[in-house]
């Protein structure tokens, strides 16, 4: 059987270190690319690192291994986060990150499964990942395959109607081999989510749709690990983790800033940001 080549990480301080590396990689590739999505890549980094490195079975040398757990980045604009995770895991050499958004690069502006094995499905048009995750979960269940599916959505993204179609589907089919995460960073492009199109009460909504809901501080590694454990143990219904996060997390001058959704660090900002992350 194949497993993650480096072995799973369960030590919290070790995971925090990986999260720092991942954040630095995100900033590095975004600075190199000169365009891309900074805030939402940073906000989801801690949860994503915990999922990828403490929970998931996969083998970068064998990306289509049937027993792998699957990770779907429904909020595809946070592609730099996914690429940073994949580089850390060893899917491709570090220097590939320099080609983010360049012509013919496997690192497309939004994840493309046909160009980069290990990306489970192409995303970028918001609202679609949860449906695909459900389909995968149902397919695995038919095969009695114990693998699990993880799906990360944005809080703005859940304004899409299809998310709620999929929310119904997961509950209706009692899909419990799926763990969804809402990166609840409070911001979208045009401003605060609650101003653009309120999604609250977010916990009650998911619960009313038949989901087991776990609310956490999405930057607290202990809470994240506990939530992922709880999700795995929850049977007969799907679980969603509402991770309260800070957009731009880790870089003080990006945090909580709407405008850093879609702008990238200058080389000078990059230097300062890396220092902050190292010291943080």
């Amino acid at each position: 059987m194949s497993v993650l080549t480096k072995g799973k990480i369960t030590d919290v301080s070790e995971l925090r270190k990986v999260a720092k590396n991942v954040r630095i990689r995100i900033l590095h590739m975004l600075t190199m690319a000169g365009s891309g999505h900074t805030g939402g890549s940073l906000s989801a980094a801690d949860v994503a690192v915990a999922i990828y490195f403490s929970k998931m079975n996969f083998n970068p040398k064998e990306p289509f291994w049937k027993g792998r757990d699957r990770f779907i980045l429904s909020k595809g604009h946070a592609a730099p986060l996914l690429y940073a995770l994949m580089a850390e895991a060893g899917y491709f050499p570090e220097d590939v990150l320099d080609n983010l958004r360049k012509i013919e690069s496997p690192l497309q502006g939004h994840p493309c499964c046909k160009r980069l094995p290990g990306v489970e499905v192409s995303t970028g048009s918001l609202g679609q990942g949860l449906s695909v995750a459900n389909g995968m979960a149902l397919g695995l269940r038919l095969d009695k395959n114990p693998a699990r599916i993880y799906c990360i959505m944005g809080d703005g993204e859940i304004q899409e109607g299809q998310i709620w179609e999929a929310a119904m589907t997961a509950a209706h089919y009692k899909i419990d081999n799926l763990c969804a995460v809402v990166d609840n960073n409070g911001l979208q492009i045009d401003g605060p989510v609650q101003k653009v199109m309120g999604i609250n009460p977010i916990h009650d909504k998911w619960a009313a749709f038949g989901w087991h809901v776990i609310g956490i501080d999405g930057h607290n590694m202990e809470q994240i690990l506990a939530a992922l454990d709880e999700a795995e143990k929850t049977k007969g219904m799907p679980t969603v983790i509402i991770a309260n996060t800070t957009k731009g997390k880790g870089v003080s001058f990006f945090e909580h800033k709407v405008e850093y959704h879609g702008i990238t660090p200058t080389p000078e900002e990059y230097e300062r940001a890396v220092k902050e992350i190292h010291n943080g």
Binding site: S131, N134, G135, L138, D143, Q162
Partner: peptide
């Protein structure tokens, strides 16, 4: 979307 997910398994 669900059909796509099923096909991916």
């Amino acid at each position: 979307g669900t059909a796509a997910g099923l096909s991916l398994t």
